[in-house]
Amino acid sequence: MKESQHNTTDFGYKTVDREAKASMVADVFHSVAAKYDIMNDLMSFGIHRLWKRQAIACAGVRKGHRVLDLAGGTGDLTAKFSQLVGDTGQVILGDINNSMLKVGRDKLRDLGLVSNIEYVQMNAEALPFPDNSVDVITIAFGLRNVTDKDAALRSMYRILKPGGRLLVLEFSKTDNEALSKLYDFYSFNILPNMGKLVANDSESYRYLAESIRMHPDQETLKGMMENAGFEQATYQNMTGGIVALHRGFKY
């Protein structure tokens, strides 16, 4: 990934103005919000649920914790965290995109999860919380859409309580050549057509595939977390490295 010093950044394989990226990403998610869950299941053959389960298991969320589910979209992680933190805890479902938040809020209310969830539209680069105020932050399949990832990681570090942890679940790089070729074919040939067929939007799903390729690999992201101040930064690959779960602590 190249964050240009000349006020430009990547948007998939395109280079765009830094200021324009957020609204372009917003357009993508406004477009896909309604079909987001069904497309996730179709695109990943339901495996995204297992990746998220692993993230929840590693989050160490306990009763009374204050959890920020950043780029939480339609609230898959929030639904589980809400039950784990109980009545004395709180989960904040944060997303930059209002459409995604609305879909998430409706879904969680339908599940009867209302008492300890707050919905906040926010930019990950400038989180609207005081220093040392959150126990756990998760960002699942959201960091790659953030314009300034370093600023976002620094902001997350700032609001975490000492002893708190950040979990980043994100698409990553597989080092298996055969799997990589198969994955590329699937991403650039099947995925956009699937998006066109189900959500009538092939461009957004082409962006998805491109943004995954532009996202930092496992070691680079680990280094970025360390630069932001996180300690004991580690990652675990899932499904051959197609997805990686990074974890870092603040002490």
Binding site: I56, A57, G86
Partner: peptide, 19 residues
């Protein structure tokens, strides 16, 4: 394996490394 009862549901996790 870790089993937690949340009052509404069970949650079961494998490869659990937390306290």
């Amino acid at each position: 394996y870790a089993l937690t009862f949340t009052g509404r549901q069970f949650m079961l996790f494998n490869n659990y490394q937390e306290q």
